[in-house]
Amino acid sequence: MKFNFSLFTFNLQNMSILIDSNTRVIVQGITGRDGGFHASKMKAYGTHMVGGTSPGKAGEFADGIPVFNTVRDAVAETGADTSVIFVPAPFAKDAMMEAADAGIKLIVTITEGVPTLDVIEAYHYIRRKGAHLIGPNCPGLISPEKSLVGIMPSMIFKQGGTGVISRSGTLTYEVVYNLTQKGIGQSTAVGVGGDPVVGLYFIELLEMFEKDPETDSIVLIGEIGGDAEERAAAYIREHITKPVAVFIAGQQAPPGKQMGHAGAIISSGSGTAAEKIAAFEAAGVPVAKEPSQIPELLKRRR
């Protein structure tokens, strides 16, 4: 198979964050129900789908996308640099490590229910290989009109200058829908995942959006559990010059109860929405009372 390596060179001036029209994507678990369905959706959106893996099914095609036995084969044949993982939770760690070992640079794990210690092991391995992890338990990411890597409903997005970072799936769609309705497009929207331990998070992504010339403002959607929002608030105060608007979900969540996401839990009185909102307000970052207020808050800050 012929392959033009010049496609590989990233043009940093012309990039949204993490993915763009040059991104070459494979799906691990492409012959599964979800993997197959979303591979087709991504392809239809215009994502450069170059392959998929399913051990023992090399030579087959899924919606015209070639299937390989291993990620190493897929990378060698197609020059893939990004992988979306749909394999079941018990096998997700292995899939993440396989991708990193084969030279994949961006690993997006959609799978929900992956054991935390598996994520920790895979995360450290991926970092050592010089790659990035997004997820698990996430909807993936999209740079509108360039590339969709994940399961987001593409029709609500519009190309533009707002970077979106979120711990949630459908709440991201709600916010994006409100942005798009008000004519505010998105540079890249990233769902970081709802588990206690996931890959790229608020601070790394804030840094990328700050550096990205295509991004002029940022929306951050947080929720109860952990203290990542508090750390993000401090980081924004010190390092972010672009306008930021925030929404935090879970003000009515009772302590000690997991609210759907494994990571959304108030433990020992910490991780409450009130603490997070206070942290952003103290950093001078406006917090929306409801998702529909976000466009207005961004405009006000411009």
Partner: peptide, 10 residues
Amino acid sequence: GAGLAMATMD
């Protein structure tokens, strides 16, 4: 969705 469900109760 969990995030939207939390936002709804809020």
